[in-house]
Design a binder for these strands. Structure first.
Lengths: 227, 227
DNA sequence: ATTTATTTTTTGTGGTCACAATTTATGATG
DNA sequence: CATCATAAATTGTGACCACAAAAAATAAAT
């Protein structure tokens, strides 16, 4: 999951701020609707407001944060329609990246995928949710980056960022790496279509689960009233 | 082509800077490789460096501008591989948006599409290249926005932004709205698949044309040496 | 004339501040 | 207890500046 716009360039302060905020969002460290302020983050991360402002602005344009009014930035509040659209797009893009990746993947990357798979099982066993999410992301993105389709990978990344806030709903039932195993087998045997199908199923299953959770919980259980 | 992250909120200075820079990029006002500096734009647009910095940063993260080294930002230099990838993605996303749009489009929007079509023909007749490009974009995006798939529209927009610098290659031979006419007929008759196919052909044709031009001209004819 | 070393200029970054808009807290009134 | 007007605190925006890094220009040497 290392996909900076500034390749092999010394990271600036706002790059670091961006990375830290993003990983917080992607492991649902903040509940939906949680307000994010420039000065608050600046204090928390121990830096000035300038780099934070840049990072927050970027996350807003990427859809990882929401700006409901001109002076409020918050963690997006889950919506069934939004989840459906993002899922539809993910089901299109990620199998595509998978297919391309299978054709170009090398042994090192395959090994890395298997490592992630093993560690993910261990994190699930320890009920370490944040670690589990991080490893799940690492698995998918090391696969996708093997496609060498940079534009596609960036798009997929923004899609993931948009579902980050939803993932807190998954915490109770953290499992489901059977499709990863299936994908790994298919990748090893060079079967691009089977690998794409496995990734498709993985996304589908997780999305259905989220959808069910979201239907039960009508945007409640957030710290804020949420408009 | 009005798709701000801050809907119906008073536009800030950096919003305006972003819009002006983007439209300049999308009508190939600057040649590929042209360097873009914060202070230069600030002087040109008559504002301070702060909003310009925000706008340029955003365009870099969206791929509309390139940052080859930590202190240089330039208009991206066309690459066959990049054009191929973006085209592949456009051929996937834009027909998808078209299909969804046909199911939801209303009479007003259809009327707007036909207006754009007529004006585009007139711009082509007058050899007004910038106007032609702007209207072409307006046609496609009023169609896509009718799909009401906001996430998809944002993705398509970033794809367009990435091919903006390539379009200067099209200036000599500016035409080809026959597929728009075909798409319009299909939309009117509610044939989503036919409309998607027409848009597909439109993208395919333009991309092939660009590819041919790019093959002829090996990244030359830019004002800068271009690495 | 060409390459290399050095100086000068340009450029992005990040810190701080004033300001206006907005949100939140407060208090009065019914 | 609820409602609304008012005041206080908070917040994003944009301007400006100092600084270091990088790029460009200049000078020196071969």
């Amino acid at each position: 999951m290392k996909l900076s716009t500034r390749n092999n360039i010394a990271p600036t302060l706002h790059d670091r701020a961006y990375e830290r905020l993003k990983s917080a969002l992607m492991t649902s460290a903040f509940p939906p609707g949680h307000k994010v302020t420039i000065r608050g983050c600046a204090d928390a991360l121990g830096m000035s407001t300038t780099p934070i402002r840049t990072a927050i602005n970027r996350l807003v344009t990427e859809g990882a944060l929401e700006m409901p009014s001109s002076r409020t930035v918050r963690v997006p509040i889950p919506t069934i329609e939004h989840l459906q659209e993002v899922t539809q797009l993910r089901l299109l893009m990620e199998p595509m990246a998978t297919k391309a990746a299978v054709l170009r993947i090398d042994e090192d990357t395959l090994q890395k995928l298997e490592d992630h798979q093993i560690q993910m099982a261990s994190a699930a066993a320890r009920s370490d949710f944040k670690k589990y999410l991080a490893l799940n992301g690492a698995f998918h993105f090391t696969l996708y980056e093997a496609s060498q389709m940079l534009v596609l990978c960036r798009i997929i990344e923004t899609l993931w960022q948009q579902v980050g806030p939803y993932l807190y709903l998954l915490e109770p039932s953290m499992r489901g790496i059977e499709f990863h195993a299936e994908a790994l087998r298919a990748i090893r045997s060079g079967d691009a279509d089977a690998a794409a199908a496995a990734i498709h199923s993985d996304i589908r299953r997780a999305a259905d689960h989220l959808m069910a959770m979201l239907a039960k919980e009508p945007a409640a259980a957030t710290t804020e009233p949420a408009e």
